[in-house]
Design a binder for these strands. Structure first.
Length: 320
DNA sequence: AAGACGAAAGTGGTTGA
DNA sequence: TCAACAACTTTCGTCTT
């Protein structure tokens, strides 16, 4: 069973060496780096069994458990009627109390989870996130509810924060701005919930890698594949020179793209890049300056600017 | 006129006493 | 808990293309 994805061609370079990154829900051309189809949403875990022969391993009854179902597809209740007969008075009382507690807890929690998971579903489909992220976000949210971390803040803001965290965890970062726009929640509010939840649940999140932003920004800005790979190259050099420590990864990615655009003759204004990336022109300029200094690109850029200038002159001559 | 540049003041978060 | 601090933003004037 050869997947049909192998038959597709890259619209940019015509190459057939495509890489279907299921975790990210992205299709990437291996020869030119073009992001082909970001909406190619993966279904995450494959739980069906297509191997011939012994399929008993994979046979299931019922739906797969999922954190995006509020009770993971299962219900739990403490004790049954018949249990109580085998217990003495004291134990029976204890059991009753437990049952009452569970009922109260679970109804409050379930109500919360139902709303939250609905919102989560809406958000992640709006943002075109793969189900693996929805799963992880659901899992984190469930934990947060169990530890009473949602109290005092809106369900929506916590969901947004949790989605942000899940994206970061899977190295498919979305900017806070994007999530803010999709959820209608203030950026600061999302950041607050995000920090609170990750701190309280001790979720380890590595600082995001600027490279993770390149393909998305580049495709919105309609940069060609050469520019993209040039930007990645610039990034890795900047990374090894430790230009990046303590700096916001988005600003670095934006600057690398800006520089790559200059070098490859695909000029975009700082404003364009600023709009897409959500960092200001000032920050792009600052990173830009730092990077071209440390990478000795100043001369090269001067040359290119001079060249484009002389080209304009030539064009003027042509007119007359 | 639009884009690029940079100074100055303001914002929100982190850190360390 | 508070102040110092770094990164980033906002705003604005100036220079360049």
């Amino acid at each position: 069973m050869v997947g049909s994805e192998n038959l597709k061609k890259c619209p940019e370079c015509g190459g057939t060496n495509l890489y279907n990154d299921k975790d990210r829900g992205e299709m990437i051309c291996r020869s030119c780096g073009l992001l082909i189809d970001a909406k190619n949403i993966s279904l995450g875990k494959e739980w069906r069994d297509f191997e011939e022969g012994d399929d008993s391993e994979m046979r299931r009854s019922g739906a797969p458990t999922s954190y995006t179902k509020y009770d993971m597809g299962m219900g739990t209740s403490i004790g049954s009627e018949s249990d109580a007969f085998s217990l003495d008075k004291k134990q029976r009382y204890k059991l009753q109390r437990l049952k009452r507690w569970q009922k109260r807890l679970s109804t409050v929690m379930e109500k919360n989870l139902k709303i939250a998971l609905g919102e989560l579903r809406r958000l992640s489909s709006f943002l075109n996130l793969p189900t693996s992220i929805e799963e992880e976000a659901g899992k984190i949210y469930t934990e947060a509810v169990q530890k009473n971390l949602v109290r005092g803040r809106s369900i929506e803001s916590v969901v947004a924060g949790v989605v942000y965290a899940a994206c970061r965890r899977q190295n498919i970062p979305r900017t806070l701005d994007e999530i803010a726009e999709a959820s209608g929640i203030d950026k600061k509010e999302i950041g607050r919930s995000y920090r609170y939840i990750t701190r309280e649940l001790r979720i380890k999140i590595l600082p995001s890698n600027p490279v993770d932003y390149i393909s998305r920004f580049a495709s919105v800005l309609k940069y060609g594949p050469e520019t993209q790979s040039r930007a990645v190259e610039i990034l890795s050099q900047a990374l090894s020179l430790e230009l990046t420590s303590g700096r916001g990864p988005i600003g670095i990615a934006a600057a690398a793209l800006y520089i790559a655009g200059l070098l490859e003759g695909e000029r975009r204004t700082q404003r364009d890049i600023s709009d897409v990336s959500g960092v200001t022109e000032v920050t792009i300029r600052n990173r830009y300056k730092e990077i071209i200094q440390k990478l000795d690109l100043e001369d090269e850029i001067k040359k290119i600017k001079a060249k484009s200038k002389s080209k304009e002159d030539v064009n003027k001559d042509d007119v007359f």
